[in-house]
Design a protein around this nucleic acid. Sequence first.
DNA 1: ATTCAACCTGGAGTGCGCTCCAGGTCAACC
DNA 2: GGTTGACCTGGAGCGCACTCCAGGTTGAAT
Lengths: 121, 121
Amino acid sequence: MRTYTPAEAAQRSGFSIDTLRYYEREGILAPVARTSGGRRVYSDSDLCTLDFLRCLRDAGMPIERLRRYGELCRDPDTIAERVELLREHAVAVQEQIDQLRRWQARVGEKLSWYERHLDQT
Amino acid sequence: MRTYTPAEAAQRSGFSIDTLRYYEREGILAPVARTSGGRRVYSDSDLCTLDFLRCLRDAGMPIERLRRYGELCRDPDTIAERVELLREHAVAVQEQIDQLRRWQARVGEKLSWYERHLDQT
DNA sequence: ATTCAACCTGGAGTGCGCTCCAGGTCAACC
DNA sequence: GGTTGACCTGGAGCGCACTCCAGGTTGAAT
C-alpha cells in the first residue's frame, strides 16, 4: 500500500503532472489525498484508476465521457451504467477498426498501383 | 467531364465549403478553376483528389502530411515519395489498429468481470 | 538555518483543424 | 432592372485537451 509523489504518478501513468491536476480539477479523478502541507499523495488505487483512464483515452474516449466514467466509479451502485458506457465506446472502437481496415485495403490498392507504375519506369 | 459548384463539391466530398477553401488556402488542394466572375469550379479530378484526401483524413493523417501529399501529387515525378508517405502512414494505421485491439481485449475482460458482478446481485 | 528542487494555485496560452463572420460580388430568375 | 441566394475574401473565433506561467509554499538535504 505504498504511495506516490506527483512526479512518480505522472511517470507511472503516462500522464503529465499538469494533466493529473487537470483531471482532478475536471472531476475525472476523485480528489487525491494530501500531506499536511498540501502536496498530493497518490495511492495504488489512484494509480490503478489512472492506468485505466489512460487506456480509455488511448482508445479515443473524449474527456466528457471520461468524466462520466470517473464519476460513476465513485458510486458503487453504478455498475450497469459503467457497463453501458464501456459498451457504447466499444461500438465506436469497433467502427474505428473497421474504418481503418477499409483504409488499409484502399491504400494497399493504391500502393500496388503506384508500384506497378514505378517498375515500368 | 462535368463540373461542380462549391456546394456540390462539398456535398460529394463530405468536406464543408469552408474546409474546401481552407484546404486550397493551405495548399493541400491545388488552386481550383474559376469562372470569369471568380467562382470556383470543381472538376471530376478535383472531386477524385478530395475523395482520397477525405480517406486520408479519416485515417487520421494530420494536415501537415496531407499538404505534403497534395504537393507531391502536383508533380508527376514524385511517385516514390508518395509511396513512402503512404507506407509511413500505413505503419501508423497498423499500430493504431493493434492498440485498439488491445483495448478491446482489456475492456472485454473488464466488462465480463462487471457482468459477473451484476449477476451476483 | 539555508538552500533548492519539487510542489501548489488560478488563470492564461497553445496547437490543431476547422468554422464563422462582415461586408461585398455574381448570376439566375421574375 | 430588381431580388435573391450562392459565392467571394481576409481575418477572427472556437472546441478540445492539454500545457505553461507567475508568484508563492513545502520539506528533504546540507
